[in-house]
Design a protein around this nucleic acid. Structure first.
Length: 599
RNA sequence: GGCCCGGUAGUUCAAUGGAUAGAAUAGGAGUUUCCUAAACUCUAGAUACAAGUUCGAUUCUUGUCCGGGCUACCA
């Protein structure tokens, strides 16, 4: 149990005995004391002032006295400044904590809570190679699932592959017209890039044809409809839906190339899924919902045969759920998929990692399922994240203005390689070890960069400035870990810390400020995970892990571990170092980032 | 037009309604007989604007200005 959650009941208890009044623990504000004041944790007193009709100073003194008197093993001192009661926690408390947890690899993880949560993420489109925006999605989804798992949830990762539709036909028709039978093998191109190139080619050709038609005197809107390549694409979609064998074959062949390419990238970035769903298989079942909704009177049919839901009472619009020709739209498919996922996994909560441009869509999806009284409707949760933009604006696959994931990773690997060689600290590494190290650093930098920001905020990435390896970055944290490991390699095994009053003298008169800061910070790790889990926000972990690395580096510069003032101090610091390394390692793992032993 | 987000140092990001708004980078000045200088220390620099609620507002409310998204019988 965290120190804060131990302190709060003690305070409410004292308040009750002192003033005969009940206070909710949730109304107490207890936070770490600002560095410029004495103390470890601070209670804000203002909220009681009115209710108890006493001055903050008097209140602070009375509460402080009472706390120390009844809990001398926890509180050793206090001071009141303005409306703040600063409490000092006993060194022995911190030492006991360190002794109990320095080697605890489960620190921060919670026992199973019998809740199942399903995380749908990645969800690629089979004619677009993975770009930086998709990476944010992949890293977020993976990390949130991992954080929830650490918090005791059973987690299931899934993926819906957008493998059908008019856009897919675009790359198919471009391949037919321009490829002359070329394949990824014949051109030595990664499959997803190969297909993506034809998607871009389609758009180039389409633009050209439209311009020609306009030059020939046609209106723009008409030209866009009449361009031969577009008409061919629409024809192809009809043929696909009718199951025309050679279209289906081509579709399978090209999707196959894409999946081969995706597999390589997924493996590299560590994305994995318990189950893949394919839209080509889920786009029909949603129609059952339409009948069901009509029967329940949740949906209504217009004269032309199209089916709608009226959400104006909820402040939204009327929304189409089935076209007049009876074919399903995006939301119809999602209704079907939600049901299918529930049938498969019986989840308590279903998280969708989808960009914020779909906020409205997801709101509608949840609302419809609620109106249909689906048991899983309330558990639907949209993890909405902001787009990754370039300084010039949004990335567009169609226009080829994207930061390609594979290229980005390669670039980061090169930076890692150059820097490592320049520093020359691992000259004895084998080729395999070097490759693994470059990969660890490169992906660490990339993942940290994308995860350190609050998901819901959009972020701008400037390709001109490659991702830094200094400061608030993955490599900084990794470096700190390597540094600690280097110390730990020098000393095998540590002695137990002396506890109690007698032992306190042996460790030194008291903990030094940086030692204590580090322990306090380590103690907060489970709280950070908890916050990250409830908020579905990995940046909480990233920020935490960075702060503790930074703190350790200050400590490291200021105090020697191996040449400590005494044997006891040395072992105290070894434990402090070991626990810091463990917490860094497990925190980074929650972000999907490995930490090296040396770098 | 309507609806939904966002606006914090030059830049990229923090801050359960609480103390003098934190970091990182870029800028300036330093640190290596001693555990990894991918580090550390010091320095300078910001809440778009205006009201309101409050003992206290970056945080809550309203308005203005700016940016983005959605508002498809596309997905």
């Amino acid at each position: 149990m965290s120190i804060v959650s131990q302190i709060k009941p003690l305070i409410t208890k004292e308040l009750k005995t002192l003033y005969q009044q009940e206070f909710e623990e949730s109304n107490l504000t207890v936070s770490t004391t600002k560095p410029e004041f004495d103390g470890d944790y601070t209670l804000v007193l203002f909220s009681f002032v009115k209710q108890l009709k006493k001055s903050p100073e008097q209140l602070g003194n009375e509460i402080g006295d009472a706390l120390i008197k009844s809990n001398p093993e926890i509180f050793t001192a206090y001071n009141v400044i303005k409306g703040f009661l600063n409490l000092t926690i006993a060194d022995s408390y911190w030492l006991n904590f360190l002794q109990a947890n320095y080697n605890n690899h489960q620190f921060g993880s919670k026992p199973a809570n019998a809740q199942k949560v399903i995380v749908e993420y990645s969800s690629p489109n089979t004619n677009k190679p993975i770009h930086l925006g998709h990476l944010r999605n992949n890293f977020l989804g993976w990390s949130v699932a991992q954080i929830l798992k650490e918090s005791g949830y059973e987690t299931v990762k899934t993926c819906i592959v957008n493998d059908r539709g008019i856009h897919i036909c675009k790359s198919m028709i471009a391949w037919q017209q321009f490829a002359n039978g070329a394949t990824p093998q014949s051109t030595n191109t990664k499959g997803d890039h190969f297909v993506g190139d034809y998607y871009v080619k389609f758009n180039d050709e389409y633009k050209k044809q439209v311009e020609e038609l306009i030059k020939g005197g046609m209106k723009k809107e008409d030209a866009e409809k009449e361009a031969p390549i577009m008409k061919g694409t629409q024809q192809m979609l009809v043929e696909w839906e009718n199951g025309k064998p050679d279209v289906i074959d081509l579709w399978k062949k090209m999707n196959g190339w894409v999946y081969e390419g995706f597999d390589v990238t997924y493996k590299r970035i560590g994305s994995d899924f318990a189950k893949m769903y394919y839209e080509s298989e889920t786009y029909l079942p949603g129609k059952k919902f339409v009948e069901e909704g009509l029967k329940q009177g949740v949906f209504f049919k217009k004269e032309d045969g199209s089916v709608w839901i009226d959400l104006t009472a909820e402040g939204l619009d009327e929304k189409l759920v089935l076209r007049k020709d009876g074919t399903s739209v995006y939301i119809t498919q999602d209704l079907g998929l939600a049901q299918e996922k529930y049938d498969d996994f019986k989840y308590d909560e279903s998280i969708y990692v989808i960009a914020d441009e779909q906020n409205y869509h997801m709101k509608v999806l949840k609302l419809i399922l609620q109106k249909l009284s689906k048991p899983y409707a309330d558990g639907i949760n949209h993890l909405s994240y902001g787009m990754v933009e370039l300084p010039s604006g949004r990335m567009k696959s169609r226009e080829g203005t994207v930061v390609d994931a594979d290229e980005m990773i390669e670039e980061m690997v090169n930076v890692a390689k150059n820097k490592t060689e320049e520093l020359g600290k691992v000259k004895d590494f084998s080729q395999d070890e070097l490759i693994e190290l470059y990969d660890t650093i490169a992906l660490g930098a990339l993942k940290f960069f994308l995860l350190r920001v609050d998901p819901k905020k959009r972020m701008i990435f400037n390709p001109e400035e490659s991702i830094d390896f200094h400061g608030f970055t993955g490599p900084f944290v990794q470096y700190t870990h390597a540094r600690i490991k280097s110390i730990l390699r020098k000393e095998q095994g540590t002695k137990d810390l002396p506890t109690g009053q007698a032992g306190k003298a042996q460790v030194g008169n008291s903990l030094l400020q940086l030692e204590k800061d580090l322990i306090i910070s380590l103690e907060q790790y489970p709280t950070a995970i908890e916050q990250a889990a409830t908020e579905h926000n990995p940046s909480v972990v990233a920020i935490y892990v960075f702060n503790i690395a930074k703190l350790f580096n200050s400590f490291y510069t200021e105090h020697s571990v191996m040449n400590a003032e005494s044997e006891e101090k040395k072992h105290l610091r070894l434990k402090l170092s070991e626990m810091t390394a463990n917490v860094i390692s497990s925190g980074m793992k929650l972000l999907g980032i490995r930490v090296p032993e040396r770098m």
